[in-house]
Design a protein around this nucleic acid. Structure first.
Length: 577
RNA sequence: GCACCUGUAGCUCAGCUGGAUUAGAGCGUUGCCCUCCGAAGGCAGAGGUCGUAGGUUCGAAUCCUACCAGGUGCACCA
């Protein structure tokens, strides 16, 4: 049940009965809560939209509509406002019906078939398998996973995917770094790690593991003899490490696609063939980049993709000077492989530093024959990690960057996940390890969780008073909930399905967090009224009917809190601890 | 130099994809509300020409253009 959609259908029926059949107009009809609550429950723009087609001024049309729409039992008042808006005032009955619906559907309230079970692929994290996850990875991870939950909630079929960059020079460097650790252990002396190697101590156990299996077999051998073995073991160890990290914040991918696999199974050749057939590839010479000094620039003909046809700055090379494929060529192959899997949407979650990469990949996808696929890239901005207001220093070079695991150990997975969604993805985020652990309203995690805790304490008290918490829905007198604070709370609850759908349409899971904050705020307010007036408490002595109704309202709040928190992947806190 | 992102209250940010009367929160600030049994909370006040200038329209923080400021990225690396 989505009140706004229900009313919208009623408005559309009225429009049709007045002879408005243009679908362009019908689709634009709004049914939304006005900013100011004194202007009613729902505002619609129908009269403004139809003034041209009916050749009348909007206010006249509005007057006609009002007569028709007031016949509906749920609308007790309708007023013209401003240039021709219609403000609708809903009968409280519809709000009480909403309460019953929530209790009846419980955690299914707000779920929908909006997505029609269409297949959506969300690729997120995809951290290079060269070390543990750091705090920056965590943002994309939480964002992607919560978006997946959100889209699932509104009826999409989601594939959670991870792209493993298990190829190229960085993997050679990884293997070399492990080899140095191998030498260190066997020779018992320190080695020097050059700039592009990985000096982190997390590679020591990997080397030890190799020693356990192979002993000193590779001690005095040439690189060609040990490289492949070291690569293979290092990659799988690093992926285990990363999967453990992900698991600690409850993230589990369905599909891991390997770059090496795409390379060795002919996908690059396939995508190049397709692009060639569609005339998107040519042999050409790129101009040197302007305004940037590139000393080693050499002008030469290259195999290029026409990404400028899609708004990119320059066409992008598919082959390097040594005639091997570029990273971009493999990525094109990857997106072709995803394309073959028949998704209706492909969503990529990337760090903001990859912004310049979007257009060329978008171009690739649009180049596929009869491609109707939706493609969206969500960029996650930096996370500034602080401790009590002071920045935590990170030095990747020294190998002591702040790992995600250390933050999870400090604050817990729930707090980490929540905080990561307290900003929209394209705004930078400040994360203060100490402040997020405070138990106060300054801490958004705690503020929302405390609402749930208070509801639990209500239950405990109710049970001790012998009140039946599982009364038949039909026997609950919601009509007794007639105070402003109660009605406001119900109105916020009635907006839940609408909020979820809007968040899903925009691929913006942070909206769920903001909604939860609003809901918690309305609940805390309603609770605080009981401080000064015991008649306004949730549990009112000697009034079992009112108490039951209010406890049911609290239960509804708890249900929505649960649903919202589960989308962002956070467990509700049950008590103070 | 080019592309993308951002610019809303002293600070940190929302703003439901074009809606209106008074642009909203939190922090900070100024006041107020418990003789612990519901204050880990609540209420109220002050604080804004929505970066600037044009444009589109019945209507713009939201769309378009140009500028300004900050961030990110700019053959063949991944």
């Amino acid at each position: 049940m989505n009140i706004f959609e229900d009313i919208r259908k009623i408005i559309i029926d009225v429009a049709i009965s007045m002879g408005i059949e243009d679908k362009n107009i019908l689709n634009k009809i709004t049914s939304e809560p006005p900013k100011d609550e004194t202007h009613g429950d729902i505002a619609t723009n129908i009269a403004l939209l139809s003034s041209k087609i009916l050749n009348k001024n909007p206010k006249e049309i509005a007057a006609d509509i009002i007569i028709l729409i007031k016949k509906n039992e749920y609308i007790y008042e309708a007023k013209i406002a401003g240039p021709g808006f219609i403000n609708l005032y809903l009968d409280k009955a519809i709000l009480y019906e909403c309460c019953r619906t929530v209790l009846c559907y419980k955690n299914k309230y707000g779920k929908s078939n909006y997505g029609n079970l269409e297949k959506v692929n969300i690729e997120y994290v995809s951290a290079n398998p060269t070390g543990p996850m750091h705090i920056g990875h965590a943002r994309g991870a939480v964002f992607g996973d919560s978006l997946a939950n959100l889209l699932e909630y509104v009826g999409y079929h989601i594939t959670r995917e991870y792209y493993i960059n298990d190829s190229g020079q960085q993997i050679v460097n990884l293997a070399k770094s492990v080899y140095l650790r191998y030498l260190e252990i066997l020779n018992n002396k320190k080695e020097i790690f050059k700039d592009d190697l990985y000096p982190g101590e997390y590679l020591i156990p990997v080397a030890q593991n190799i020693i356990n299996h192979y002993g000193d077999k590779f001690l005095n051998s040439d690189e060609i003899e040990w490289l492949d073995t070291f690569k293979k073991i290092s990659i799988s160890s690093m992926m285990d490490l990363i999967k453990d990290d992900l698991s600690s914040i409850n993230i589990h991918h369905d599909v891991f696609t390997s770059e090496e696999f795409l390379k060795s199974n002919g996908f690059i050749e396939k995508v190049v063939k397709i692009l060639n057939e569609n005339n998107m590839i040519y042999e050409g010479v790129l101009a040197p980049p302007k305004g940037l000094k590139k000393e080693d620039w050499k002008s030469r003909p290259q195999l290029l993709f026409k990404s400028t046809a899609f708004g990119d700055d320059v066409d992008r090379p598919l082959k390097k000077s040594d005639n091997s494929w570029t990273y971009f060529a493999v990525d094109a192959a990857y997106h072709y492989e995803k394309f073959l899997r028949n998704y209706s949407s492909i969503i990529n979650i990337w760090g903001a530093d990859h912004g310049g990469y979007i257009k060329r990949i978008e171009g690739i996808i649009k180049s596929f024959p009869s491609s109707t696929i939706n493609f969206d890239v969500k960029l996650c901005q930096l996370v500034n990690l602080n401790s009590d207001g002071k920045p935590v220093k990170m030095s990747k070079r020294a190998g002591n960057f702040v790992t995600m695991k250390s933050v999870v150990d400090a604050v817990g997975a729930d707090v980490l996940r929540f905080i990561m969604l307290t900003r929209k993805n394209d705004a930078p985020l400040d994360f203060d390890i100490l402040k997020v652990q405070e138990q106060s309203k300054d801490n958004p995690v705690y503020y929302v969780q405390y609402a749930n805790i208070r509801i639990n304490s209500l239950y405990k008290k109710a049970i001790s008073l012998g009140i039946d918490l599982n009364k038949d829905i039909d026997n609950i007198d919601f009509e007794l909930l007639d105070n402003t604070f109660e009605l406001n709370l119900i109105k916020i609850i009635s907006k839940w399905p609408r909020q979820v759908e809007a968040a899903a349409k925009a691929n913006e899971p942070h909206r769920i967090t903001f909604y939860l904050n609003d809901l918690a705020s309305a609940f805390h307010y309603s609770w605080s009224l009981g401080n000064t007036n015991s008649e306004l408490r949730y549990i009112v002595k000697d009034n079992i009917k009112l108490t039951t109704a209010r406890l049911s309202l609290a239960k509804i709040v708890k249900i929505i809190l649960f649903s919202g928190l589960s989308i962002i992947g956070v467990k509700p806190a049950e008590d103070l601890s």
